[in-house]
Design a protein around this nucleic acid. Structure first.
Length: 579
RNA sequence: GCCCUUGUAGCUCAGUCGGCAGAGCACCACCAUGGUAAGGUGGGGGUCACCGGUUCAAAUCCGGUCGAGGGCUCCA
């Protein structure tokens, strides 16, 4: 904790040093804000000209010089009037000054020739900064105070660390992130593509990507059936009546694809599956004996996302939610929440994610539903996370207007957090669609409704998996599990025999019968990140055996074919990750 | 949507001062090929994103448009 604070002060100080360097270069520049952030810092400027990447070199050089002077950071509390005079020609600082509450102290920090309005804290002197442990990374645009209607400022991002070694490690991590980028691996491994000319943000799954996706979906369906769910399938479009009733046209229209007109009615591509599932529910009367209904669907939805927000598979305009709606009586709510959380964790862990953090979001100011309902729902969510022994944070007032929620975030192989699961109460739709069940007293009552997506969207989840495994999928997910490589032409027949047998046994397998040399075939399979290669020659054919080269480099020669089948099947069934 | 960067072969990229469009990989053909990460030779492949301007001459300089990447913003 103390270490974190130190690093925070160091980075924040670094941003002041950068501002000093920039002001040296552009004395008329307007300075805005320059906080420390994860891994580094930034500062926003209003500059007389555009920055070029080469400018970063000059700014860096000046920063190193400033650091070398060893000037102390001096704090000074001042009156508002004094500060106003000091920043008379710095309009952003004046605006910040006005935003400081009356009863709060106004403080300045000065190092060398640069003084900034700042709450601190800072390191004692620029001597505490290491000129070899920072790097300016990028230039970006950012709105003043993050508001679209405000002027666009120039933001310079930098990273800073205690020592050059930590900087090197961080830069290496950045390289690693780049290597794992799902867009790059998606292209290299021929998994999927996007085609702007055919529609931005819409994903094309190639045969190899589709194999992996279907392996995910098969598992998903089987687990749902095994855990008390039913599958439903619903249309992709619905008439305006549906979206008026759900409220989407009132509250979410700008997030929807525009309407299509047919037979004098307006149809909309679905941004959510819930109204359709409710239509199925409302199709017949339900007794309390029928509940809970747990209905799941891999439902593809379409949402308008701003062009600049689109990003590979992570942010798209058409995606498949692994959606489900649980409709239950108030009595059943507690058990259902416990169960859906347990099931979520089981699913996430099956895909190899062990570190999971929960976020509980409670009632916002503008919201629907009775306070008693909210309280009961929040408490059951809280009890569920505590029952599972999860670490959780509470986001007070962070829930949707229609109900509280739990989100689960996982950490990937590089320690990055991704939100996958969301479990949300809905006090809004049951009312809007007049959902009822007949209770044991013969009276119609309103059921509880819970939305949940475990993996989130299949597209995004797939992107996360690609980056988590760096494209080297565990065998149960790999598009090709086994590649057969005969050492030379005379063994093609045996290779084909083994291929046929493994296919019959249900493995995803192919034999490389091209006229490449064996070395080239191994290299290709290795680059395609196929988990197992079977090298077949005279010895293997005579013994009805295979020599197994693992993707990891492990080698097992002369393994009887049945033994390989047995072992590999176990690896696949256990969802083992090859390390 | 806005700001910055960027756009040359399927992919990764070179192309100097404005002077005939290039390489590696991939693809195709032929030859070679018996043991754990690239065998050899040859070939096909381009409206240099698009539109306009300057010039004897534009991938290259200028203006615009479109796309992509990085940010910002938004996320029922």
């Amino acid at each position: 904790m103390e270490q974190d604070d130190k690093l925070h002060a160091l980075r924040h100080s670094m941003s002041h040093v950068m501002a000093e360097a920039v002001l040296e270069m552009f004395p008329t520049a307007q300075i805005a804000v320059g906080p420390s952030i994860d891994n580094g810092f930034y500062y926003d400027f209003d500059l007389p000209r555009q920055l070029k990447p080469e400018d970063l070199d000059e700014i860096s050089a000046r920063m190193k010089e400033i650091i070398s002077f060893g000037k102390p950071f001096v704090k000074r509390a001042v009156s508002r009037r004094e500060a106003e005079e000091l920043f008379a020609d710095q309009k952003y600082k004046l605006e910040l000054l006005q935003a400081i509450p009356e009863d709060e102290e106004v403080s300045l920090y000065t190092q060398g020739g640069f003084t900034d309005l700042c709450r601190g804290p800072h390191v004692e002197s620029t001597k505490d900064l290491n000129p070899q442990a920072f790097k300016l990374l990028s230039i970006a645009g950012a709105y003043w105070r993050g508001k679209e209607t405000n002027p666009m400022l120039t933001r310079i991002y930098g990273t800073a660390w205690k020592n050059p070694k930590e900087l090197r490690l961080y830069l290496k991590k950045l390289e690693d992130i780049e290597k794992r980028d799902h867009r790059r691996l998606g292209k290299d491994l021929d998994l999927f593509s996007l085609h702007e000319e055919a529609g931005a943000g819409l994903v094309y799954w190639h045969p190899k990507g589709a194999r992996i996706r279907l392996a995910i979906e098969d598992f998903w369906r089987n687990e749902h059936y095994a855990n008390g769910y039913e599958m439903v399938c619903s249309p992709h479009v619905g008439k305006s009546w549906l979206w008026e009733t759900s409220g989407h046209l009132d509250f979410y229209k700008e997030g929807m694809y525009p309407s299509m007109e047919m037979d004098k009615a307006h149809y909309y591509a679905k941004p959510m599956n819930c109204p359709f599932h409710i239509m199925i529910y409302n199709n017949s009367k339900h007794s309390y004996r029928d509940l809970p209904c747990r209905w799941a669907e891999l439902g593809t939805v379409y949402r308008y996302e701003k062009a600049g927000a689109l990003h590979g598979l992570m942010r798209v305009r058409g995606f498949t939610q692994d959606d489900a709606h649980i409709i239950c009586t108030p009595d059943q709510m507690e058990d259902e929440i416990l169960e859906v959380l347990r099931f979520s964790l089981h699913m996430l862990r099956s895909f190899g994610f062990q570190e999971i953090q929960a976020y509980l979001s409670t009632r916002p100011v503008d919201s629907v539903g009775a306070q008693l309902q909210w309280d009961a729902a929040v408490e059951s969510l809280r009890r569920a996370v505590e029952h599972e022994g999860l670490d959780y944070e509470v986001d007070d007032g962070g829930g949707a207007f229609y109900g509280p929620k739990i989100d689960l975030k996982i950490k990937d192989a590089l320690g990055r957090e991704w939100q996958l699961t969301t479990i949300q109460f809905d006090f809004n739709l049951p009312q809007r669609f007049k959902m009822v069940f007949v209770d044991r007293d013969g009276k119609e009552k309103q059921p509880y409704m819970i939305h949940r997506a475990l993996l989130g969207s299949i597209e995004r989840f797939f992107g996360v998996l690609v980056e988590h495994y760096a494209g080297a999928f565990p065998p149960w997910l790999a598009y090709e599990q086994v590649r057969i490589i005969p050492v030379a032409e005379p063994f093609i027949e045996y290779a084909c025999k083994v291929e046929q047998l493994l296919k019959q046994e249900g493995f995803r397998v192919s034999a490389d019968l091209s006229d490449d040399r064996m070395n080239a075939k191994i290299r290709n399979a290795q680059q395609e990140k196929i988990p197992f290669m079977l090298i077949l020659g005279e010895k293997e054919e005579q013994q009805k055996a295979v020599s197994v080269r693992w993707r990891t480099g492990k080698q097992e020669n002369g393994v009887p074919l049945e033994t390989f089948i047995e072992n590999t099947r176990e690896i696949i069934e256990n969802k083992a990750v090859l390390s």
